[in-house]
Amino acid sequence: MALGVSLVLPNPRLAHQAHPLYNPRVMANEDLNQWFIEILKHNESRIFNLVYWQIGDYEEAKDLTQEIFLKVYKNLKKFRKESRVETWVYRIALNHIHSYLRKARHRKGMISWETLDGERTDVGTVDPPEARPEYLQLRQKIRELPDPFREVLLLFYFDEKSLQEISELLGIPVGTVKSRLNRARAMLKKALEDTP
């Protein structure tokens, strides 16, 4: 029997399936590109949907999703395998939406949400199901929820994440997720009742 040291190298094509030996820091650019494409394919639609229901504007949601994935691409080399890549992508997305909404609230004095909604309806060439009156109202009320509650509600109902998954994504205990979700529902229910 021959003795020796064998070096097992992971297949870069399977890189998106977290491989313990896999280290993006030493990856070639081409492999990094292919990995990025895999990440994009798996998360693009869900991130867009999540952004859309938080922002409530199709065109803006498109731009934001684009910015989010540019950030992912830029930082992919720095990504450490301490968390799942999906968790990391969601964190980037949620942070990005946070800062967008914070800036938007600053501008709120000048442009009201109603104006934005009106503009959107004018521009809209298609008539998507989410443009139905009950969803327009739902979208607006969701957007008005405070950040921690809105996030949990959207991840749960609009991205079908479990309480456990949300807890991992946000780095908060499951119990907290549960109580935030309950608060969010109650707040949403009240907000919808208060508008005729």
Binding site: L40, K41, E44, F48, Y73, E130
Partner: peptide, 24 residues
């Protein structure tokens, strides 16, 4: 019911190409 039935909104087909154009 309203929350459960809320439609998933899909991105325009051009989004992925736009992103790839600026990255890969």
């Amino acid at each position: 019911h309203l929350l459960m039935e809320a439609p998933r909104v899909s991105p325009p087909p051009s989004l992925r190409a736009d992103i790839l154009q600026q990255t890969v």
